[in-house]
Design a protein around this nucleic acid. Sequence first.
RNA 1: GGGACUGUAGCUCAGUUGGUUAGAGCGCGCGCCUGUCACGCGCGAGGUCGCGGGUUCGAGUCCCGUCAGUCCCGCCA
Length: 597
Amino acid sequence: MRTHNCGTIRTEQIGETITLCGWVDRRRDLGGVIFLHLRDRSGSVQVVSDPIRTPDSYHLAETLRSEYVVKITGKVYRRPEESLNLRIPTGEIEVYAEQIEVLNRVHKQLPFQVSQSEDESSVREDLRLKYRYLDLRRERMSANLQLRHQVIKTIRRFLEDKFNFIEIETPILTRSTPEGARDFILPSRVNLGEWFALPQSPQLFKQLLMVSGFDRYYQIARCFRDEDLRADRQPEFTQLDMEMSFMSQEEIMNLNEELICQIFKEIKSVEISLPFPRLTYAEAMDSYGCDKPDTRFDLKLVNVSDLFKDSQFKVFSGAIAAGGIVKILPIPGGNQTVSNVRIKPGGNLFKEAAEAGAKGLAYIRVLDDNEIETIGAIKDSLTPESKQQLLTLTGAKPGDLLLFGAGDAAMVNKTLDRLRLVLGRELGLIDDNQVNLLWVTDFPMFEWNADEKRLEALHHPFTAPHPDDINDLTTARAQAYDIIYNGTEVGGGSVRIHQREIQEQVFTAIGLSAEEANDKFGFLLEAFDYGTPPHGGIAYGIDRLIMLLAGEDSIRDVIAFPKTQQARCLLTNAPASVDAKQLKDLEVVSTYKPKAD
RNA sequence: GGGACUGUAGCUCAGUUGGUUAGAGCGCGCGCCUGUCACGCGCGAGGUCGCGGGUUCGAGUCCCGUCAGUCCCGCCA
């Protein structure tokens, strides 16, 4: 039907007669000459019609409206010198419309303008989602989905051509996994009373593929978790899932660094130097208070517990006595940039701290001549020596502000991490153009779940412990690694357990009885008996990665048909009720009672 | 499960301490206009103010409830 795509026409096509198909992006009828912008997913191009040069098309051109689907045949001309538009890629040429064929019309008023003006005001997202097929015609969304395709294409080429990976599909209908997120479950008609679950990840299948000898596997895998939604969380999402046999943690990380480099090179034309910086989990928590630090800016936390363990100031010494810590977030120049109002109750920084669980937000302002300004109780508790030590430890200079966190370590870290990010953003310390990638390694195997009074796998229970820590699993480090891009976790993986005894010990550690372990993971344990190679892998949140590459704030903007925060599809109105017969066939009865009016 | 914000014309928004007939820009329709590119100019149509209830002489505005959307907390191995 067509010979070219609209957005690709350049001066090279001048003189050619071409046929284009697409949508009328805009029509400008000047009375005697009509300009159209014809759009397809490649972009748009200007089409001209007037009664003298293109008499056959002129009258039809007058009837065209926005979003009509048309086929246009005509010759490509260079635009007159005074009409060049160098702001668009096709701005040096235009097409004289010798023939126009209307392939389809718009019969109703559009719910919103598809064509975007430069100072585009944003259309409500619920409307965009209801008419997603129109929203996706728009340049921004179209570009995002095309970027998504480019990223996935780059991944496929790299893994397949350079490292001999093969893609294998794993089941969508599988069994419910006990740990982790809530599963989506589906009744089985053939096996009445029994239920499938949608996979939260292909984890177990990819490990079994290693047992099968597919030593380099990957999959662009859809995953499902029935949890509440966020800007960066959807109930179904896409993972780049990889697993490799006969590779050490170091080798896996190296390969993945190359992969990420390739993506940034192809997509952003950015060369990233190798290797990526690495932080251990302990270092990350110590210096940044979180396991996915944004290291684009240099603010670091300082642990001052030793200095205050015998302090007269009971808030600090008491916290330490109770097994907690005292840490400081130093803000260079903070005396100028951060007012007391914001730190004190009612201020936004205080609120931020309180939301993280802090009882208060102590601070010290460093003045000239090593004088300090703070509340009396802290000032009185500091000897000249301890004051000097404090300044030395934190590297504080006159004009700097020191913000304190005191209490149990988790809360202190959470508090100061939040303050660090808020202030980093507000004080303009973050260069948005910077690409900052790093690994966080050596995560602990387990963390204590106080509610259930048991250890929980921090990563997942198939993660191998560090060989040096094998004698006490409860405090062991894991051979796990996360990849952090500008403060967001975009991928995480581990070397896996490939020996039955160790897997059984880990199940025991997280409180699974031998019976439960056998019931739920017996097939994996048994597979380990039949010659399982050492293996490991990683999974990337593809939606998140692409969101960041696209500069978007929500993964909905890089997913063609996302759900709303209430987990609904506004386009299809899913989820919806089903026929009584469908339920009867499944022997399923809903006990749900809608709230009475 | 909890907190915050939003909902007025097809779209994006304004709407004062509650007070006459609810406005603007864009879009849409009609007319004029031969080099525009967010074309311009003129005329016009278009509103259950999310929905329900309450207070009031009077509610877009105040109160209660409810629905929808967004952000966050919990949750997300």
